[in-house]
Simulated assay, not measured.
Amino acid sequence: MTPEEAPPGAAPGVAPDAPSATAAGPAVQLARQRLVRLLDAREWMPGSQLPGERALAKQVGVSRSSLRQALARLEEEGRVYASAQRGWFVRSDMVSEPPSLLKSFSEVARARGLTATARVLSRETRAATYEEAQRLRTAPTSPVLELIRVRGLDDVPVCVDTTVILGTHGDSLRSNDLTDKSLFSLLEDGGVRVTRSAYTAHAEAADHRIAELLHIPAGSPVLVCDEITHDQNDAPVLLGRAVYRGDAYRFEATLLRGA
């Protein structure tokens, strides 16, 4: 029932919530349906804050009590989440690595019907640190290309990605437009086929720099993922550190129990 079809006596654009047991259910369902339509239409972008309850109830056409119940249902469905004393927010589109399958950020996003974006913060050739040289199996102070980007889904920032690539493999990346390119694809174009990655993940609280780049409050949970990626000869070719918004990334893995 649209607001225009509301029974006589109802306020324009507001569906009445009668005190009877039968009225509450339909009003909550109506609110949920309208919120879903607005979310699907990207009325509010992933990660953004919803309007206040009073304004949102008026926009959806229900009472605030029905709105709260509808929002609670959408929270259970993973569409929105509540932040204490700050209101309701749209959940970011989740990115996850398929279990036991190495894919680039761009490939994972594309598989979910999303557009992967990147904003290059810095790109420089420098000498490898002692630790980097050890992990890349190269001589200390060997040249490496360090690339720092903010990765996004449909222009919503979800990750700060730092990649350190051996200088011998970084030539094709020094001048390429990396706003919508996969590093794995560019490496493969240069004859380097990525085959596996040693991956670790741990939780941290976002510092002010990361929080600003990801559009989240400082201290918000983030997932920090470190990797060493190897080529077809099982030689390490790059080191990566990706810092994801806690509400935008899910790590999946297939674990096998030994005999």
Rank of each mutant, 00 (worst) to 15 (best):
V144T: 13
A111P: 01
A24N: 07
S83N: 01
L56M: 11
H169W: 09
S66K: 04
R193I: 02
A203N: 12
R209H: 12
G9N: 08
R174P: 01
R137T: 06
R126K: 15
D17M: 09
L71W: 02
E132R: 10
R73P: 00
E53K: 14
A118P: 02
H169Y: 14
A205L: 12
L238N: 03
L255P: 00
L214C: 07
R110E: 15
E204G: 01
W88Y: 09
V224Y: 02
L173C: 05
R257I: 15
T200S: 14
A84H: 09
S20L: 08
R209W: 11
V158Q: 02
Y199M: 13
G9H: 06
F251M: 09
V28K: 05
S83M: 11
A27P: 00
R137Q: 13
R245Y: 05
V28D: 00
S20E: 15
D231M: 10
V95P: 00
D207M: 05
Q49N: 06
A24Q: 11
D247N: 13
H230T: 06
E212W: 05
E146A: 04
R135Y: 07
L30S: 04
R79L: 15
G25I: 10
V90L: 06
Q134A: 06
L238H: 03
R123N: 00
L35P: 06
S185V: 06
A218H: 13
R42L: 07
P221R: 12
D154K: 06
P217W: 05
V90N: 10
A235E: 11
D40S: 03
D177R: 14
P12R: 13
R112G: 14
G170L: 13
P217R: 12
E227S: 13
P7W: 10
Q33D: 15
Q29P: 01
L102C: 13
A203S: 14
P12T: 13
A127T: 07
V95E: 08
S182Y: 08
A84N: 01
L183D: 07
R54E: 15
G258S: 12
A235L: 08
A24T: 05
E131G: 04
R42Y: 02
G190R: 07
R151A: 00
H230Y: 15
L183A: 10
L67F: 01
R245A: 07
A139S: 13
R151W: 01
E43M: 01
I165R: 04
S175L: 14
E43D: 10
I165W: 10
I165P: 03
A116K: 04
L74T: 03
R42A: 04
W44A: 10
S92R: 15
R126C: 02
S65K: 03
S96R: 12
L183F: 13
A206K: 03
V224G: 01
L56S: 07
R135D: 00
G240C: 10
L173V: 12
P16W: 04
D40W: 01
E77L: 06
E146G: 01
P140H: 04
L183H: 11
R119S: 04
N233T: 09
P51I: 09
Y81C: 02
V150A: 04
D155P: 00
V80A: 10
